[in-house]
Design a protein around this nucleic acid. Structure first.
Lengths: 116, 116
DNA sequence: GTAGTTGGTATACTCTGTGATACTGATTAC
DNA sequence: GTAATCAGTATCACAGAGTATACCAACTAC
């Protein structure tokens, strides 16, 4: 019925793709991961590094990502309380995806500019 | 103020990332692109290849992606009308992202299974 | 004093992405 | 006849993603 020779293990790949989309879907998770991986540690620092995000969304996403072990939150309870976020090794496995997407975004910009 | 030596061109990268998310965001665009790039051409064929998608979502996404020149729609108006979708070269530039995400999804599955 | 920073929470609201279901007209297969 | 396939469209409905805005307590700087 199908051209079996063309087809890789499609169902498995589709599922893997959908799983990934489920974990990093939405507008903010990848930018947050990227920001933290780039060295931003403090809440306001991360916030400032991502244009358009609100404290509420950042707060929510950070919580969710902490639960999913993508990031680690550390509180230093010295006189002015200090909070730091770090990426876990697991989080860093998104590196390739993020790089590929940044690359695509840059190419896309060129493409749009050439068209106009 | 900042450790300039650590930082790449962050603002530009964040924007590129956000642009990409804007274009391929949502639950279905990447699975659809992947399906078409894997050789599926007909509406029902694509539909069957993506578990969980409804005709409505597929229809909407295909339209949007056609407008964005990511895919090409061809109608062969012979006795039973035939419609075929193809990926454009531009669409194929998502290849790396999709592969990276499939890879991540597979690793993620292992990771989950080891934990449990 | 006043203004600003930090790390958030609270409340209210919008909106759109997604889902569920049914249906169409043409055609083919039994 | 009946059922099925093809390529979709039409409605309705909803959760939850995302936005806007204000606010808090503790602290620093001027």
């Amino acid at each position: 019925m199908e051209n079996a020779q063309l087809i890789r293990n499609q169902p498995e790949e589709v599922k893997a793709l959908q799983d990934t989309i489920y974990v990093i879907g939405g507008k903010w998770k990848l930018p947050i991961i990227n920001s933290i991986c780039n060295g931003n540690k403090r809440f306001r620092e991360i916030e400032r590094s991502i244009p358009g995000i609100t404290t509420r969304m950042l707060s929510r996403e950070l919580k969710e990502m902490e639960m999913n072990k993508l990031i680690k939150r550390t509180v230093y309870p010295d006189s002015p309380v200090l909070v730091e976020y770090e990426s876990t090794p697991y989080c860093k496995t998104f590196g390739n995806i993020i790089l590929a997407m940044i690359e695509w975004g840059k190419e896309h910009k060129k493409y749009i500019q050439e068209e106009a």
